[in-house]
């Protein structure tokens, strides 16, 4: 009986993508790209699109507050970014020539804090960093992810791709096996998504909270019973970049609601 339950919950149907013109087999063809939104039930989709009921806006509100009001002597973000940061999140993670590092949106916000505001960086998953990241990313809502891979970025993309393709954990699964080869099929009660980060920071019903893309990656690693990497790990940064290139053209949905 138990066996039957597991088997029926794990019906893997063959993937349905063409790889003909695609040199990177982990990349989903543009016409097949689908946001995690399309794999949610109608009720969860409604929770995301209702800008009042979407609980993630509680954090966006706080982010707006942090952005416009300084709580100490340092200048508020809005004193420089008078017109906000529309479209910025669509280009992250980004390689910063001046500092020579790859930064995700969280990293870029913390760079501003340390370099221009004379403040200690906010910790990963701190309420402040989640709130302000969600607020900044929300300003790009509806805009397509637009990552152009420069020569300096290529090694990071390759590193992220390598992580994506590598089997890990007790389940011995790679990201690729679920999110490229079997998206759209059922895994227990869920429909497997394509594994895009276009809605993050997102409110996950599972967390009952908003969380970063790295928290999601940690959950994926834990899900296949692998040891998750620490927050801010350079490998996760590279994975974030690789995911963004893989999702190029998909609209930013932050703050999304996910399972």
């Amino acid at each position: 009986m138990m066996r039957w339950v597991f088997a029926s919950g794990l019906v893997f149907v063959a993937g349905c993508m063409s790889e003909a013109d695609n040199p990177d087999s982990a990349i989903i063809a543009k016409e097949d790209l689908q946001s995690g939104f399309s794999f949610l039930t109608a009720e969860t989709q409604r929770l995301q699109t209702d800008e009042f009921e979407n609980p993630a806006y509680l954090w966006v509100d706080r982010g707006a507050d942090l952005f416009t009001h300084s709580t100490d002597a340092s200048p508020a973000c809005a004193s420089c970014h008078k017109d906000g940061l529309v479209g910025v999140a669509a280009q992250y993670p980004k390689f910063h020539e001046s500092s020579g590092e790859l930064l995700n949106l969280e990293g870029r916000i913390n760079q501003c804090r340390t370099e221009h505001q004379g403040q200690a960086p906010w910790a990963y998953e701190s309420d402040e960093l989640l709130s302000i990241t969600a607020y900044v990313a929300e300003q790009s809502k509806g805009m397509p992810i637009d990552i152009e891979v420069s020569e300096a970025m290529q090694p990071y993309v390759d590193k992220g791709r390598d992580y994506f393709l590598t089997r890990r954990g007790q389940f011995n699964l790679s990201c690729q096996q679920c999110h490229t080869e079997n998206w759209g099929t059922q895994l227990r009660g869920d429909t497997i998504s394509q594994g895009h980060g276009n809605g993050f920071p997102a409110y996950r019903l599972e967390w009952q909270l908003i969380g970063s893309l790295q928290r999601r990656l940690r959950d994926c690693d834990t899900g296949v019973r692998a040891e998750p990497l620490p927050y801010g790990d350079p490998t996760y940064l590279a994975v974030e970049l690789y995911l963004a290139t893989r999702a190029n053209g998909l609209e930013i949905e932050t703050p999304a609601v996910r399972r």
Partner: peptide, 18 residues
């Protein structure tokens, strides 16, 4: 894509998933 390899891991998922 190597379906055989993927199928091989399915047994592991069944066990661990259980």
């Amino acid at each position: 894509r190597d379906k055989a390899l993927f199928n091989a891991t399915r047994r592991q998922i069944l066990t661990a998933g259980g």
